[in-house]
């Protein structure tokens, strides 16, 4: 059994209200050493609120938030975390290298570990070629990478990334994923919020789906996916798609170019019937639903 010392960050029964809006409603969340937890949910579901409680930017109205068993605001706890927030205006007039050096210096108050060098940090974040550039002169994607660099300037044990890859091009996103995996291999835990389900699918060990301030599903990517029984059938067939849509066990049937795409909760029955009716059927594929389908399903249930 995993020891409790493995838990690096936790929310326990945490609630937070902003005026009339109950942004977070009794949420329990645990992040363990070396684990990537993805927080998913529609806009306004409470993802950013959950992170800001864990970071000590806000206090929960009820329940608790802690980092390494301490108050999130304790300096000793903050020496062990890094964060990339969703909205941060970094001073335009400082150079990238100066910004990294500044954040690096913050982590020097912790005598038990040395922060990364500016060079290493820049390389990990993919901003080595930007060190002499002023922050204000960078593109949106470059600025986002610099913010990532600031988050990893210390040798942190947990990273909070609030929509880290929004605005990044594919290449920059891949670089960031790679760095995230490297950090996790070193034992760093990650809490990630994202709009990109493929990001959660590619990175996360665990997924928590938030809707209206509550956790509506939590588990591994496979477990979340399994919450949705349906699978997707694709094939080229002469059977009329409108007719298929009327069959039992068929949730939907559409034409996608020459292919027919069917979503079903009992693929065996549907495939048998298809093959019976169309001996010429070919290019048959059956896919388990992805995280995207599961997500839509779960948040629909919660609404």
């Amino acid at each position: 059994m995993a020891m409790d010392t493995d838990v690096v960050a936790a929310l326990r029964g945490a609630s937070k209200r902003y005026g009339k809006l109950l942004a977070l409603d009794g949420v329990d969340l645990e992040v363990r050493h070396g684990q990537i937890l993805a927080l998913l949910g529609p806009n306004g579901a409470g993802k950013t609120t959950a992170i800001s409680l864990l970071l000590g930017l806000h206090d929960p109205d009820a329940g608790s938030a802690n980092l390494f068993g301490e108050q999130p605001r304790a300096l000793a706890a903050r020496c062990r975390i890094g964060a990339m927030l969703q909205t941060t205006a970094v001073p335009d007039t400082l150079q990238v290298g100066e910004l990294i050096a500044l954040f690096r210096s913050y982590y020097m108050s912790d005598s038990s570990r040395q922060p990364r060098t500016v060079f290493d940090t820049a390389q990990l974040a993919g901003v080595s070629d930007l060190l002499k550039r002023r922050y204000g002169k960078l593109s949106g994607g470059q600025q986002r990478r610099v913010q990532f660099a600031l988050a990893i300037a210390g040798r942190v044990e947990i990273l909070f990334l609030d929509e880290p890859t929004t605005g990044l091009d594919i290449e920059a996103r891949t670089t960031m994923w790679k760095t995230i995996r490297t950090l996790v291999a070193e034992g760093c835990a990650i809490v990630l919020t994202t709009h990109y389900l493929e990001e959660a699918e590619a990175l996360a060990d665990r997924v928590a789906v938030l809707a209206r301030g509550r956790i509506v599903a939590q588990g591994s990517v496979a477990q979340i996916r399994a919450r949705v029984g349906q699978r997707r059938i694709r094939c080229i067939t002469a059977v009329d798609v409108a007719a298929i849509a009327q069959w039992s066990h068929v949730r939907s049937a559409v034409r996608d170019g020459e292919r027919t795409e069917i979503v079903s909760d009992s693929t065996e029955a549907v495939v048998r019937r298809l093959l019976d009716q169309d001996a010429q059927l070919h290019e048959l594929e059956i896919q388990r639903a992805g995280l995207a389908e599961a997500f839509v399903e779960i948040t629909k249930e919660a609404a």
């Binding site: 000590g56 301490e70 108050q71 605001r73 304790a74 300096l75 000793a76 903050r78 020496c79 001073p91 007039t93 400082l94 100066e98 050096a101 500044l102 210096s105 913050y106 020097m108 108050s109 912790d110 005598s111 038990s112």
Partner: peptide, 30 residues
């Protein structure tokens, strides 16, 4: 508040000096 609740467990004052100096230096550069 963050300052008020700070617990100086493994954090010694003089180690914070580089941060104070850099913070001031970059404030000046800005």
């Amino acid at each position: 508040n963050a300052i008020a609740e700070t617990r100086a467990i493994r954090v010694s004052g003089y180690r914070a000096l580089p941060a104070y100096l850099l913070e001031a230096r970059y404030e000046f550069l800005r």
